[in-house]
């Protein structure tokens, strides 16, 4: 009984409070904005900016070489070591080279696939192809990397395929790393280019053809300029993901190491040095993104 008698009272009070809050929020624009942005901003600051700052600050610490305990006096020792050390330069260049090659290979493969998906395939086939492109993402990264380890091995399927042609499997090494990473990141490159191609109106291509342009000319002068932002958007994925990778190269890279491996080697015993090394890809990515921002490709993500 009490339950019911209490109801009308609540029913009157709650809307009144809600109405008062909504009136307050309606009149105070800034308060509304603050409340709306508080949660995502806290997240951004804590997870992203604070993490980056922590990385920066850690790079300026040093460690006791015996116990690996961090000593918090600030020093530029590690940063200088990373900037001047031969091994860090070699590995940074190797990583950069691998990232560029993976990006180029992926873009070259993605362009025709995305073009077929967006412009030639029937709507039904189009849907199937999108699913097919996304399908590999359902499997674990590790499973795919180990699959390539077995494909590329001495007794793997690659060797079996190439043997009749008088060729050998590339074996484990930089080539294997590029193949595997190229495979892993391909969906991330195809999708933005596909999305970019979908936005190119067919009428433009037809107009170009009607005006006498050959297919290659249309592709080069009409299609490509409109696609550049989409290609760059795709390249950001393959480039940045490769810059930070260390597992694939560990599995199929033979004796080679990338920047990620140097970070992983040091993270246990010399965290400040690991942080200093981790700043290299951060800087490279920062430079790359700044350059890319000018092309307007970021709006295409």
């Amino acid at each position: 009984m009490d339950k019911y008698s209490a109801l009308p009272k609540q029913g009157v009070e709650t809307p009144a409070l809600a109405r008062r809050i909504s009136t307050l929020l309606y009149s105070k624009v800034k308060l509304r904005l603050t409340l709306l942005l508080a949660a995502p901003l806290t997240w951004l600051v804590l997870v992203y900016i604070a993490a980056l700052l922590a990385l920066l600050v850690t790079a300026l610490y040093s460690v006791d070489s015996y116990t690996s305990q961090i000593q918090t006096q600030l020093t530029f020792k590690n940063v200088l070591k990373v900037l001047t050390g031969q091994v860090y330069q070699t590995v940074a260049l190797r990583t950069l080279g691998i990232a560029l090659l993976v990006t180029i290979v992926d873009t070259l493969i993605a362009l025709p696939i995305a073009f077929y998906m967006a412009k030639i395939a029937s709507p039904r086939l189009q849907r199937l192809l999108v699913i097919a492109v996304l399908m590999p993402l359902w499997a674990s990264y590790l499973v795919k990397a180990y699959a390539w380890r077995s494909v590329l091995s001495n007794e793997g399927i690659m060797q079996w395929l190439l043997r009749p042609l008088g060729l050998d499997t590339p074996g484990y090494g930089i080539t294997a790393t590029i193949i595997t990473l190229g495979y892993l990141w391909l969906p991330y490159v195809i999708l933005p280019i596909y999305a970019g191609l979908e936005r190119v109106p067919n009428s433009l291509l037809e107009a170009s053809g009607d005006l006498g342009a050959k297919t290659s000319t249309t592709l080069r002068l009409v299609m490509l300029p409109m696609l550049v932002p989409a290609i760059i958007a795709g390249s950001i994925f393959s480039f940045s993901l490769t810059m930070g990778d260390y597992i694939t190269v560990n599995i199929v890279g033979g004796a080679n190491q990338m920047l990620g491996n140097l970070v992983a080697t040091n993270v246990g015993n010399n965290l400040p040095l690991a942080a200093a090394i981790a700043l290299i890809p951060v800087l490279i990515m920062f430079g790359y993104l700044t350059a890319v921002r000018k092309t307007g490709a970021l709006e295409n993500l």
Binding site: V45, L46, A50, L53, A54, V57, Y61, Q69, I70, T72
Partner: peptide, 15 residues
């Protein structure tokens, strides 16, 4: 961010 950084360094210095 400065406050966050302070909090972090504070944590790290206490070993």
């Amino acid at each position: 961010t400065a406050a966050a950084a302070l909090a972090l360094t504070g944590c790290a210095s206490a070993t």
